[in-house]
Design a protein around this nucleic acid. Structure first.
Lengths: 201, 201, 201, 201
DNA sequence: GGATAAGCGAGACGGTACGTCTCGTCTTTTG
DNA sequence: CAAAAGACGAGACGTACCGTCTCGCTTATCC
């Protein structure tokens, strides 16, 4: 599978029924994903919801995985807003709060599940990595600004810091449904900024 | 589904064929899980591997989900060893290293995938939470020891600290297949212990 | 299967629990047969109804077919009453009416169905033939009496006459659910007694 | 099940794969019916014999009963030949002889069994009635011709006469496996034509 | 602006897995 | 130690989905 997913059916016949069908199918996919979850997402359900014949979907996306993957990418563009408060702590806290809130929405949860499914499909795997990369990269600017402000050293591992903040949130959403309240983001950010060691005198 | 999974078939006829069948099926389930992954785990495959008739599995576990769930719980006992080096940093680093190594094994990865699968089944959801709780609780002793040694304040959020350490590892294993090398655990532990802020003069 | 069905469990302990169990199972079998029909008759259902463990039934009757067959024979004794009005026409009409009425009862219909089921089991086949023989033989006396009265020739084929009368009734019950009303028996008897040819002058 | 069985898949694409599959499945059904009997008829067996995937059969006919029923109807067209000898006695004798011969064939016996199976399925019940109606109706012409020739009164109950002739044959085939030889048809016809009463002087 | 090629509607089919229901055998457990 | 209770082997049934294929027909694009 060498096709680039997010391009399927995009080029040819850009204006007209094709494009209309494509869009309504992707919308329907996300809608079903949000409502019923990823394992209840069936091609037939998407077709019905999109008002499109099942065959048309199968013809274009070939497999269920491709469909999900394309839908994923199609919405990975709409990124979370990156706060800019002038303080790293406030930036990260706001960011973490947004992430937690998104994980609490049906679509957010469904996307999370979708990107975590085991898969043998390389294209899908790649699409998932892209999905997260597109989410992560813009957020790095918060770190860079803090470095520029001298809050943190220039050697700070940007990606790792971001992951240390969002991974626990996603993890709680996925498995342990422990407390995922409004105080949690700040606690995590405090942890990452200050560490837990007793301040050395 | 009110039955407690991990008890299925345990009580009655504890000595004999029943117990033998149960054990071989659970073993086979984990084996298949490790080799082929969770979505390739088919009841027929487990039955074949266990040398047991498919019907016997379906009769006792009813659904595929129950089977996976029971297998999960059956192996959640065998916990990771909890290091005790006298230093929190070394303890956590060793622990994180073990966790990363386990995530790199087929079974580890499969268990991870199995516990993040979306599910409508309450029993399964509960089993997964139990699975992680049984993994997490014993690890808390590392924190307690550090508190006793005066390394960290008694108010430290034990669960959160552990999650901040393992969640990024699991997250990389699940989605972004970014670097998951031998240096990563130490980096995360440093992050959690020291924070990233410039030391205040 | 060489065992003679209708003897199973009869000899030993004629007054004890065995006999009690046997009777309640056979009763339950007939009851289920009457209520749900032969193809819905399941060993489990009979066991439940008889208040007996399924295994006990299986041990004694071995197969479902044997059970049905034994139940059948156990009730083939209770024959239809043979009328004796002094007139062959009235005797046969009454007999046919009874037969039609019995076919209209749930048990009658179920027995009919049970005896026409295809089977590979010789014992069952034989039991079914016995069932019908026991029903038919006593009825022949009607013919004999008519011969004695000089109503019909001594050469009359007794069995064939009886079959010509009851077979159409059973046939309508089994397949064509055409008219099976109170006038039918008499019409059939008229047919058999007088024939349909125009009386020769 | 509101669908009319015998129409399933008949209309659309009359010459394509569908029709080919349909035909081979029905043929296979009748073949299996003839060879192994109705209760040994398994969907898998039919599928194997028809060189068609089991799922295709289940999809179109849904249940085993429907399949049998459709096969039944599909062959109810090929009726027995209706003799026309100029004599009612000879016509009926020939007809009865044919019927007896057909009951002696595997397919004949299987069809007979199939049509007397108890069923909760209305469509199947109706199909069976249709099957027999289609067999019976054309035969009535023998009676009508005899009426026209003045052999029998115009008031003769055509259906009843035919049933009186074939029912005993079918009955013997189904249950009592008594004599079903070449003399029987004639004896039955004699019975029905002349009656058994001593001729009145 | 009409020919042409792409895409869509419709419906089967092959294939895999799931879960249910029997029947009949076998093995533990228990009285 | 024999009967009762229950698990197991075997196999059919029916359901749901996935992915492929073939026809017609509609519609967008291009000459």
């Amino acid at each position: 599978m060498i096709i680039c997913m997010s391009e399927i059916g995009v080029r040819r016949r850009p204006g007209g029924r094709s494009a209309r069908v494509r869009q309504s199918v992707l919308d329907a996919t996300l809608a079903v994903l949000a409502e019923d979850g990823v394992d209840a997402l069936t091609v037939a359900a998407v077709a019905a919801r999109a008002g499109v014949h099942e065959t048309s979907i199968r013809r274009r996306w070939r497999t269920r995985a491709n469909l999900i993957c394309d839908a994923l990418l199609s919405c990975s563009a709409q990124q979370l807003p990156i706060p800019d408060t002038g303080s790293l702590r406030e930036d990260l806290t706001a960011f973490a709060t947004e992430a937690a809130a998104y994980d609490a929405t049906p679509l957010g949860r469904a996307l999370l599940h979708a990107t975590v499914m085991p898969t043998a499909d390389d294209a899908l795997a790649k699409a998932r990595e892209d999905f997260w990369r597109r989410r992560r990269e813009p957020a790095k600017v918060m770190i860079w600004r803090a470095v520029a402000r001298g809050e943190i050293p220039a050697t700070t591992a940007t990606q790792l810091v971001l992951e240390a903040i969002v991974a626990p949130l996603h993890f709680r959403t996925l498995v342990t449904h422990d407390r995922l309240d409004e105080r949690l983001p700040r606690e995590i950010v405090d942890l990452v900024l200050n560490g837990i060691l007793e301040p050395q005198p």
